[in-house]
Structure formats: C-alpha cells, structure tokens
C-alpha cells in the first residue's frame, strides 16, 4: 500500500495542477498562450491518468482512474498545496507551473532509473514534457520579472504568495522509504539552481520563508481545493455508476 499512497500523491499533484491550468482555456492573455496553457494542462492530466491507473492496479480493489479522481473528497486528496493554489493572474499561474516543473524535471530524471518498470515508463515521457514546461514558464518569468514596472510588481507578488508552499515539495511524505521512487528531499539542490538561474535573469530573488505552509499530503488543504473538486466532480457524482 505504501507505493500506492506515494503514486496517488503524485497523481493528485498532476491532476489538480492540470485542472487549474485548464481553467485558463479561452481566457489567456494572447491567443498563442491559449494554445500553450492547454498543452501543459494536457501533459499534466495525461501523466495523472497514467499514475491513477497504476495506483488502482497497485491497490487491487478495482478502482480505475475515474474512481480515484472523481470519488474522493478534499480530505482524501493528497496533492501539494502549491498545485491547488488558484490561478490569480498570469504571473501566479506561470510561477506556480515553473516551481512545480523545476522540481519534476530532476525528480523524473531520477525516477527514470527506478527499479519499477511502470514508474520508469511514466518518468521517461513526463520528464521530457516537464523540461519544456520549465523552459516555457522560465522564459515568461524572465519577461514578466524584467518587463514593465507593473509586470515586475505582479511577479514579485506571485513569488511572495507562492514561495511559502515550496518547502512541501521536498517532504518525503508517503514516498519515505519507498525504493521505487526517488528521495524528494534530494531534489532541492537542482531545484534551487534552476530557480536561481531564471530569477537572476528576471531580477527576482528567492525570499526567506519563516513560516512555510504544509499539510496537503495529510489531506489538510486550503479552502480553494474543496470548491475545485466540487466543480470537477459534480457531473460524475450526480449520476452514480453511469458510463461517460
């Protein structure tokens, strides 16, 4: 069950973040970005589907990807608080994605050497996708940080608002002691190097966070997640047992 829990955590991260990105579809700052954001959302949702399916198989209780995504409430969701943060503005959205992807690149790269074949398969594909997310979002962080006065202010606000959730990414949580998955704490050095490089070009700095927020892995979320799930699961739950 331990690997099940750890895979579920990863799956929830990807679905919740992918759902957040999908909320932008049709409302992006320019048409080109209305194509880029769904591309990233589709990557995340695709990875979530693979992970949920694997989690269902590990559990062996007959739950499929939709049972796991649509029939668990907010206390059962195990995603990072960072992933559930509301979109706010484009600066928040891009930074949230950049922080997450900058973690997932080294994570998937380590997971691609996992002893577990399914994990290796997912890691190989997701790692490439995340590398593009780092690049796409990193370029935007630079442009917004080093653009106009307004964009610089919004970027700094986003850093202030989101940095308190960064520490949670490095907690081992359910993956502690699981040989099939890499150590999350071990990603810190590479994550900081990626962020520092982009922040250097963007004129931003990593703030010191005296009171980091954590709790997602224990199902203790912010208030926004419940609303997100209520919306996401509404049709599915209104018709128990139906096929879609």
């Amino acid at each position: 069950m331990a690997l099940f829990d750890a895979v579920l955590e990863l799956a929830d991260d990807h679905l919740v973040l992918g759902h957040r990105l999908s909320e932008w579809c049709g409302h992006a700052p320019m048409l080109e970005e209305d194509l880029a954001l769904p591309n990233m959302a589709l990557d995340l949702i695709g990875t979530a589907r693979g992970l949920y399916t694997y989690a269902g198989a590990l559990e062996g209780a007959g739950r499929d990807e939709d049972d796991l995504a649509y029939l668990r409430g907010e206390r059962a969701y195990r995603n990072l608080l960072l992933c559930e943060r509301p979109n706010e503005d484009f600066a928040h959205t891009i930074l949230r994605q950049f922080y997450f992807a900058a973690f997932m690149v080294p994570y998937w790269s380590a997971a691609a050497r996992s002893e577990d074949e399914t994990v290796r398969g997912i890691a190989g594909k997701a790692g490439k996708e995340m590398a593009y997310h780092v690049r796409h979002c990193g370029e935007w962080v630079v442009r917004l940080g080093d653009g106009t006065e307004e964009s610089a202010r919004r970027m700094k606000d986003a850093v202030e608002a989101l940095h308190i959730y960064v520490g949670e990414m490095f907690e081992e949580a359910a993956s502690a002691g699981i040989a099939a998955l890499p150590s999350r704490a071990g990603m810190r050095g590479e994550w900081e190097a990626t962020v520092d490089h982009v922040f250097g070009l963007a004129g931003l700095s990593r703030p010191v966070v005296p009171h980091p927020q954590t709790g997602g892995r224990a199902g203790v979320h912010g208030e926004a997640l419940g609303h997100m799930l209520a919306e996401m699961q509404s049709v599915h739950r209104a018709h128990p047992g139906a096929t879609w």
Binding site: E32, L35, A36, N39, Y132, R135, H136, E139, R143
Partner: peptide
Amino acid sequence: MALNAARDV
C-alpha cells in the same frame, strides 16, 4: 517566444 509559440501552435 516565437519559437515556443510555434512549437505549441
């Protein structure tokens, strides 16, 4: 940005 957009579009 043009190269990224071309990739995405």
